Structures are given as C-alpha cells and as structure tokens.
Computed example of a mutant assay.
Amino acid sequence: MRKVIAYVNLTLDGHLAGPAGELDWMLPDPELNIALSDELRGRVDTILTGRNFHHGIEQNFRAQATDPASPAELADFATWMISTPQVVFSRSLTEVAAPHRLTGDLAGTVAELKALPGKDMVLFGGVSVVQEFVGAGLVDEYWIKLYPTAIGAGQPMFTERRTELRLVDSKAWESGILTLRYAPK
C-alpha cells in the first residue's frame, strides 16, 4: 500500500510558518536539498498539496525549470515538481490543469489513492493541509527538516491531538539543520 510522506520545514519550537506565514527563518542548504530531493523523486509519484502551495509550485518552479541561469540540480527538481501529478485539496478552487486533480474530501481521497498501484505520495503543504492530514492521522512518515531557529509564535504542525511517533532516521547537516524521519507508533 502506498504511503503518505509529510515533507515539512519546521522551526525548533515546532512551527511550520510564522504567525503571518513567514518563512524567512529557513536557511539554504544546497547539499541537504539535493540529497533529499533525489531520494524523494525516486520514491514518490504524486504530490499532495493545498491551494496556496499548488499556486506556488506553478509560479516558482515553472520559472526555475525554464531559467537558463538555474543550476542544473534546481532545474531538474523544478521540472519534476511541475510535471508530477498533484492532488490539490481545496474547498475554494474550481479547477486545476491536467494532470492534476482537485478534491475537498481529504480522508476519502487519501484512502482511494493509497489503494491504487504506484509509488508513495508526498505532502508538501501548505500549513492548513498539513495540520488537517496530521490531525486526521493520515501521515505514514514524517520527513522533517528541523531548523536551528525558534520564532516564538507561529503556525504549529501538531494542533488537534496527541501524536506518538518513533524515530526512524536522523542526520545533522553542517548548516545546523537536522533531518528527522518519524513514523507513527
């Protein structure tokens, strides 16, 4: 059965973003990004996302994929991001371009997708979609990039219920970022 991997950037104090969605606390780490993106692309064939992140993929990655000044690794990843089928969870969007799919039914759609043949799926966000997946217990693996920054207030990943996890893997990077992999107990 296919798995849902939540791939998130998290502050040391547990926030996905600042109170107004700020992401200025994220440090660049090209070595880490290349290593994780290569592994992720080999493992997943579907992107799960919310409306805002879907629009961000279309705007940011399309430009990076076609910009001749983009480093080759970034252009390759950007091309993968825009060409990989997305399932967009939204109650306000009315359509998305093929090969993407639009739905408002979180649990039903995830159950249907897990039963289909294929590789695993990656949940990129935004914040509210990640919170909904976590709260509904739909995440099979957490791939967390833990940044060495505490922001004091913001939008947390865990909001609705206690979640017991077991550590699967961890690595410290030269930038101070930790990559952590957890699975539900």
Rank of each mutant, 00 (worst) to 15 (best):
Lys114Arg: 12
Leu123Arg: 03
Asp29Arg: 15
Glu160Phe: 01
Ala172Arg: 15
His15Pro: 06
Ile82Tyr: 03
Arg166Tyr: 02
Glu39Tyr: 04
Gly50Ala: 09
Leu138Lys: 06
Asp38Gln: 15
Asp38Met: 12
Leu116Met: 14
Asp29Phe: 12
His54Asn: 15
Val44Ile: 11
Gly18Met: 10
Gln86Asp: 04
Thr49Gln: 12
Ala75Cys: 12
Pro71Arg: 10
Arg181Leu: 03
Asp29Met: 10
Ala20Gln: 15
Ala20Thr: 12
Pro30Asn: 15
His54Thr: 01
Leu138Ser: 07
Ser70Pro: 08
Phe158Thr: 00
Asn33Ser: 14
Thr11Tyr: 06
Glu141His: 00
Leu36Val: 03
Leu93Glu: 01
Leu102Lys: 11
Gln131Leu: 08
Leu167Met: 12
Leu23Ile: 15
Lys145Ala: 12
His55Met: 12
Ser70Arg: 02
Gln131Ser: 08
Ala35Val: 10
Ala183Phe: 00
Leu138Asn: 11
Met81Pro: 05
Leu74Lys: 07
Thr109Leu: 02
Val88Trp: 04
Gly154Cys: 09
Leu40Arg: 08
Thr94Arg: 10
Pro85Ser: 07
Asn9Lys: 02
Thr84Tyr: 06
Ala6His: 01
Val134Ala: 00
Pro117Ile: 04
Lys145Val: 12
Lys3Phe: 07
Phe61Glu: 00
Arg166Val: 13
Val88Leu: 05
Leu23Trp: 14
Gly176Ile: 08
Ala78Thr: 04
Ala111His: 13
Leu180Thr: 11
Val127Asp: 06
Met26Ile: 13
Ala63Lys: 14
Ala98Ile: 01
Glu31Tyr: 00
Gly137Asn: 06
Asp120Pro: 02
Arg43Ile: 09
